[in-house]
Design a protein around this nucleic acid. Structure first.
Lengths: 199, 199
DNA sequence: GTCTATAACGAGATAGAC
DNA sequence: GTCTATCTCGTTATAGAC
């Protein structure tokens, strides 16, 4: 899948490093212009290159976006996996919710690319989508450990987190007006589960 | 604010009618290309005009988008105001939630323009924003009638509705997988209120 | 009001020298 | 691998005839 080109710089890994720089520049571009309005000319300028030179690293603009998708998904997956979860399964579910919510509001552009279909003409490749699937698997597993197994309950749980994230980003970006309600909302959710299981 | 031009067609209101046609075409364009990628050339083609002719109706592309914003906000406001609310205030709050959620999933493009800031370089004018404010006022009032007055509770309520809408649109567009959970989620919410007020 | 023509710009992508 | 030059296409917006 990777272009087999000999980098000018003899140091191994230089090509990959430059590639990462470009992806970073593309994120910066997306933050200012919007995800769907990334300009390769601007991305190149940010890393001190001319626009055609990017084609030594990415076969097309979509290939660059695909790399961004894979990076964002891997990043969230990594955060979920590296988290130190408490013994209580229910607290574990709470923590994974907090991790995802925190990622969402701290990295709005990454989240937009991963969670919404907002780039016209772009569909993630199977390779790029793999970490996203793995991430969802971890997420669902954490919920299952806490007894959230019914599909409808999983849907509600994800909607609660997504709702807080979307409101936070749209109406109080950078703040914590909605994020601070996560515990209350999860109390609500688990009280609902408990009440239902008692009957 | 309105251009004072004499329409060729002598019938009064012809100009305004054509204007509405153009806005409708722009919505259709936004649905296929995405909101931020509307092309005036395509919009013109859809109404049987050439692209420069649009400038007899809108001073700029942003002016067209502003008209779309105003129309979408007015449409949702109208739906909220025309709804026949039940006597029970709590059922009233449930119904306004359902109305907003239904609008959101039935009109994803309109909702995106109203509720998210997703068009780079566009900010709604004061005129266009007015119906949006009025809509929010009705919404908050309905919640207050049902005893949802604490700002934090209002925030949670809106997040619940937004969460169902965002998940529905992102993961099951056209379906009702999340919409069908609205009643359960509202049960959860009001049970939470009741439980808290009992102590 | 609508048209043709065009200005002015920017995009993504390719060719080929170095 | 990076560059210059260029192709091709698209966009918003304006000028001016009718």
């Amino acid at each position: 899948m990777e272009a087999k080109v000999k980098p000018q710089d003899p140091r191994p890994g230089r090509h990959a490093a430059r590639r990462d720089e470009i992806i970073q520049a593309a994120w910066a571009e997306a933050e200012t212009r919007g995800l769907s309005a990334i300009s390769l000319t601007e991305v190149a300028r940010r890393v001190g290159l001319r626009q055609p030179s990017l084609y030594s690293y990415f076969a097309s603009k979509n290939a660059l976006i695909d790399a961004m998708f894979a990076q964002a998904a891997s990043s969230l997956l990594h955060q979920i996996e590296q988290t130190d979860y408490p013994a209580s399964p229910r607290d574990g579910a709470r923590l994974v919710a907090r991790t995802v919510l925190q990622f969402g509001v701290s990295n709005p552009t990454q989240s937009q690319l991963i969670f919404q279909r907002t780039i016209p003409g772009y569909e993630p490749s199977a390779d790029a989508y793999a970490p996203a699937l793995q991430m969802q698997d971890r997420y669902v597993r954490k919920l299952a450990d806490a007894g959230v197994t019914a599909p409808a309950d999983v849907d509600i749980f994800t909607a609660l987190v997504a709702g807080l994230a979307s409101q936070q980003l749209a109406n109080d970006p950078g703040g914590d007006r909605w994020v601070s309600q996560l515990d209350t909302v999860l109390d609500m959710f688990f009280a609902h589960l408990d009440r239902r299981s008692r009957t």
